[in-house]
């Protein structure tokens, strides 16, 4: 399986996040950490601190109850995975 790791980008929609920590807990390679920063609703949003560890599995994007996690893969990665 050929894959260029830097082709995956992770975005968190801070306006939607409710700080449930599900992505932090369930990401197997441990990409996310809790930030020290509160969003406008008073939640500590996660940050993808180790983006290079992401395998592109999509669990976080699918399981996020607020549709706040976005995994962006470029076309090449999409084809191979």
């Amino acid at each position: 399986m050929i894959r260029e790791k830097d082709k995956i980008e992770i975005y968190i929609d801070e306006g939607l996040c409710k700080g449930c920590d599900i992505c932090i807990e369930l990401c197997r390679p441990g990409v996310f950490v809790k930030s020290e920063k509160l969003n406008s609703r008073g939640y500590y949003v996660p940050v993808p601190a180790s983006m290079n560890k992401c395998t592109g599995c999509m669990i976080c994007e699918l399981i996020c109850p607020e549709l706040a996690v976005i995994i962006k893969k470029n076309e090449l990665v999409k084809e191979v995975v």
Binding site: G15, L16, K18, G19, C20, D21, I22, R41, Y43, L62, I63, C64, P65, E66, L67
Partner: peptide, 15 residues
């Protein structure tokens, strides 16, 4: 954002 409580599964079903 939804009215669902933080961490509620309803949001995952919607997603």
């Amino acid at each position: 954002p939804t009215e669902f409580c933080s961490g509620c599964g309803c949001g995952t079903v919607l997603n």
